[in-house]
């Protein structure tokens, strides 16, 4: 079996398992496991977003927590004003997920546009540090801005609504997250197959040759970065609704690091890499977190081992290393 077919089989297995396990938990009345699967799905959405910048475009953004937090605060602030019946900038709050998601994506996209336009003037190590610094700027802003809880964060008392679902029920929330994840993966696959994706990957592999072919690296990369931020922002809005809480901790630099770790554990640039990586990270936390309070030490050792000796992540390990440009 060639490795492309192997990867598709593996993808189908991962997608099936992420559905089957919570389905079993729903039947067995284990809401904790459903919520865990929902968290994996939402983290995977965030990482699919980052995978556009990192996997396709080779842009190592160390600041994607910024978009996660922005999306989270859109959900939190909208729900806050809807709950208290107050207005923000002349608009009423809302407890409907669809307008919240739209706003979260637009806002994340705008901020990613500004951050990207500045950061993409540089490359390599500068790019990593600058995206990190912009995320820290957002983190400290959220920390010291008192109107929405500052350091204490902002609770969402009632989970926002989605037409036709009762989002307060874990199973409904899972279905929603799973559906959005599948849509995002479809969008990622479409993007990768499209001319735009080909251009983005060409720029990653050799910016000079791409430029010689008439592809403007800056414009294409910026669009990729904005799309990436938008999807991560969407995940942020969903994450805030899942935990019914948003705080500056969502923008912490460690979260940006974890998003990269998810992609690396799963496999860079792979369609299902983020899903596999999110499942490994959450699984690791739950399993080893139950055994020892020092589980992060073990996570660090595993991560170090993967980086030094097993590049390609889980999917690379199981499906083989294919299409280095892929």
């Amino acid at each position: 079996m060639d490795s492309t077919r192997k990867e598709w089989l593996l993808n189908a297995l991962i997608a099936g398992a992420l559905f089957a396990v919570p389905l079993w938990a729903w039947l067995a009345n284990e809401p904790f496991i459903i919520t865990l699967a929902t968290r994996i799905a939402i983290l995977a959405i965030a990482a699919v977003g980052l995978n556009i910048a990192l996997g396709l475009g080779g842009m190592v953004s160390f600041g994607h927590a910024l978009y996660l937090g922005l999306g989270g605060y859109v959900a939190g602030i909208a729900a806050h004003h809807a709950f208290h019946g107050t207005e923000v900038l002349g608009l009423p709050g809302t407890n409907q997920m669809l307008p919240i998601w739209a706003l979260a994506m637009v806002l994340s996209g705008l901020v990613a546009g500004v951050v990207g336009a500045l950061s993409l003037r540089t490359s390599g190590i500068f790019f990593i540090m600058i995206t990190l610094a912009f995320a820290q700027m957002g983190f400290f802003f959220a920390l010291s801005w008192p109107a929405y809880g500052g350091e204490d964060g902002l609770p969402i008392f009632v989970r926002n609504q989605f037409p036709g679902l009762n989002t307060a029920r874990p199973w409904d929330m899972f279905l929603l997250a799973y559906a959005v994840l599948m849509l995002c993966l479809l969008a990622f696959a479409g993007l990768r197959a499209a001319r735009f994706g080909a251009a983005l990957m060409a720029i990653r592999q050799n910016p000079d040759r791409a430029a010689a072919l008439g592809i403007s690296p800056f414009g294409i990369k910026l669009v990729g970065f904005v799309l990436s931020g938008m999807i991560t922002g969407l995940a942020g809005a969903m994450m805030a609704d899942l935990t019914r809480f948003v705080s500056p901790a969502m923008m912490a630099w460690t979260v940006s690091g974890e998003l990269i770790v998810i992609i690396i554990l799963g496999g860079v640039g792979r369609l299902f890499g983020p899903v596999a990586g999110a499942a490994i990270l959450v699984g690791f936390e739950v399993f080893f977190g139950g055994l020892t309070e020092h589980w992060k030490l073990w996570l660090g050792l595993v991560l170090l081992g993967v980086v030094l000796f097993a590049r390609g992540g889980l999917i690379g390990l199981l499906a083989g290393r294919v299409r280095h440009g892929g």
Partner: peptide
């Protein structure tokens, strides 16, 4: 590449 350096040293922070 820088990505590997970031990840390995991030792992070192955890450790």
């Amino acid at each position: 590449d820088h990505l590997d350096q970031v990840l390995a040293t991030f792992a070192l922070i955890l450790i």
